[in-house]
Write a protein that binds this DNA or RNA. Sequence first.
DNA 1: GTATTGGTGAATACACCGTACGGTAACGAG
DNA 2: CTCGTTACCGTACGGTGTATTCACCAATAC
Lengths: 217, 217
Amino acid sequence: MPLSREKIAATAIRLADTHGLDGLSLRKIAKELGVGPMRLYDYVINKSELLDLMVDVVYSRIAEVGERSGWRDTVLAIAHATRAAALEHEWFSDVLGGRPHLGPHALAVGEATAAALNAAPGVVDIDDLQRAVGTLNAVIIGSVRREVTERRTARSTGTDEAAFQASLGPYLTRMLTTGRYPTVARLVIDGAHLEAEETFHHNLTTILDGITRRRST
Amino acid sequence: MPLSREKIAATAIRLADTHGLDGLSLRKIAKELGVGPMRLYDYVINKSELLDLMVDVVYSRIAEVGERSGWRDTVLAIAHATRAAALEHEWFSDVLGGRPHLGPHALAVGEATAAALNAAPGVVDIDDLQRAVGTLNAVIIGSVRREVTERRTARSTGTDEAAFQASLGPYLTRMLTTGRYPTVARLVIDGAHLEAEETFHHNLTTILDGITRRRST
DNA sequence: GTATTGGTGAATACACCGTACGGTAACGAG
DNA sequence: CTCGTTACCGTACGGTGTATTCACCAATAC
């Protein structure tokens, strides 16, 4: 089988999943495919285009969520699918919001969310729609990015308390015991470990409620 | 004058401002300082730590906004300062939310926002505070990132309509005329150019209103 | 005064990166 | 048979972060 954009993107995604975006190189992809590095340039302009390709593959998975009955359920389904995709492919969050996503599948999920939001109460003219899309995307990007970063640091320091104390602990506890950051200290010490998915859902409902309510400003 | 972490960080920031984060290399920083590349390692563990240093310098500028009278004004001031900093140092948005910000100045602005939110109505226990901080940061990260990316693509394609049609135009218009993305097409064609700062402010007020309102879920 | 030492800034070296470029072999169309 | 196209391949260049080695020079010991 002769090599193709799809196959290149697939193995690139697999490598990025396991070694991160920094550990991804054209040479490694080529080696994984049993091929010289320059072969890839017969199918891809440069690394940036390959990244766009990978991103759109992920969007194609997100786009697979079918339409729901109501606009709200549709938006929630897309958002949760985006989060799930980012958790499965953590590099995706590194790229989220960092470049325009204009691939066909990215446009498809953009269309789906825009169409759903257009049916939301409180969205009457096109300016409302534009604002609603912007706000929703902002909250998705920010939430997902936050969660993935937290998960990474948690993994790097180790989940258990001991490893945490050994790595970030010394510096952070020293910082927090200075008394200059009392609220942050209280958050870190007394704060419960909130369920991530519930937090995400909370953020979503907060801004969806905000969208449906007509504002005066 | 003998070289210092501060001076290294300052010229690194200057270089990143003009050439972007990708165009930033230790060798260029060293050359700018009239020094061998390896000298930097006497002041900095590795490039990652240098990046953390740069980030915290930016946070120090953000932290300069004094306390406002009310919790809402304080939060808004910090958020707008963050946006302003990201517009001045666009590479900052590339890093926003992508790594834990634990520098002293970053902690200081974290403390300030947390303390302000703690005084907000609707925030009663520590779980509320944790959620509020998370939501606010998510919306700041997402909004700023979106805006910077848009500004970049606008600059790369050129602001004027003609250049746009020449670069992204062909592909995008071809995509939009397929009729598969009617809502997106309407947004692109009929959508007015909204003022960026006002959009940001809109996103902020939306979620601040959401925070002050007690939720049932 | 000479020899030895310690430490510090400079230079070299390594492994890796993206990619420009030239070349070769199969193969269907004329 | 020739020719243009397509798929494959290897080498080479300039760049990166960083480990390591080298060169020098001031200070001390004799």
